[in-house]
C-alpha cells in the first residue's frame, strides 16, 4: 500500500519537471502533465511492477473558458487494482490547439471514452482509430458541453436568473 506522498514522490522521481500541481482533494492524488508526456506516463504507471495501475476508470474533459491558455482540461482517472489506489491526471490544452494523443493502444476501453469527450468538447485525440461523434447526431456542428452554449435560451424574459442567484 502506498500513501499519496509516496506515490507522488515515486512519480516525481521518474518524470521530474513533466509532472506538476500535485494535490490530493478528498484523498485522491491529482496532478498535471503535458500532452507530450501523457502516453509515456500512463504506460509507465501501467507497466511498472511496483505500481501496476492496470485499470483506466474514465476519460473526460472540463472547459474553463476564463483561464487563457488552459481552456480545456482532459482528465484521466486511473485505478490500480493490485495496490488499490486511484490517480487523477490532468492535461491542459489551449483552445486553438486541441490535440492530444489517444490512449486506445494502451486501454481498449478508451475508444468510446475519447469519442464521447470529442463529441462533447471537440478535443482531437491523435491516432484514434475512429474519432466520430458517439451520442449526438453526426450532423451537429458544435460541441455542446462547452460553456459558450447555455442550456436555456438566453433571450427568454420570463425567467430572471438574477432573482435566484444564478
Amino acid at each position: 500500500m502506498f500513501t499519496n506522498e509516496q506515490l507522488a514522490q515515486h512519480i516525481i522521481n521518474q518524470f521530474g519537471d513533466a509532472v506538476s500541481d500535485f494535490d490530493d482533494p478528498y484523498d485522491l492524488l491529482t496532478f498535471s502533465t503535458t500532452r507530450e508526456q501523457i502516453v509515456a506516463l500512463i504506460t509507465y504507471l501501467r507497466d511498472e511492477p511496483a505500481l501496476q495501475v492496470n485499470f483506466l476508470t474514465d476519460i473526460t474533459a472540463v472547459h474553463y473558458p476564463d483561464s487563457p491558455g488552459k481552456e480545456y482540461c482532459v482528465v484521466y482517472h486511473l485505478h490500480s487494482f493490485v495496490n488499490n489506489f486511484r490517480l487523477r491526471i490532468k492535461v491542459f490544452l489551449t483552445a486553438d490547439d486541441m490535440h492530444i494523443p489517444t490512449m486506445v493502444p494502451l486501454f481498449a476501453g478508451a475508444n468510446w471514452m475519447e469519442r464521447e469527450t470529442f463529441d462533447y468538447f471537440g478535443i482531437l485525440f491523435d491516432g484514434h482509430p475512429d474519432l466520430r461523434r458517439i451520442l449526438n447526431m453526426e450532423e451537429m456542428d458544435y460541441h455542446p458541453m462547452r460553456k459558450e452554449y447555455p442550456l436555456e435560451d438566453a433571450t427568454r424574459e420570463d425567467k430572471i436568473d438574477a432573482l435566484f442567484g444564478r
Binding site: D58, T60, V62, H63, H77, G109, W112, E116
Partner: peptide, 16 residues
C-alpha cells in the same frame, strides 16, 4: 455543479 461526469459502466463495457 461546474461539471458533472457520470462514469456509466454500460457505456464503457458495451464497446466490447
Amino acid at each position: 455543479p461546474y461539471r458533472l461526469h457520470f462514469r456509466r459502466p454500460c457505456f464503457i463495457y458495451y464497446q466490447a
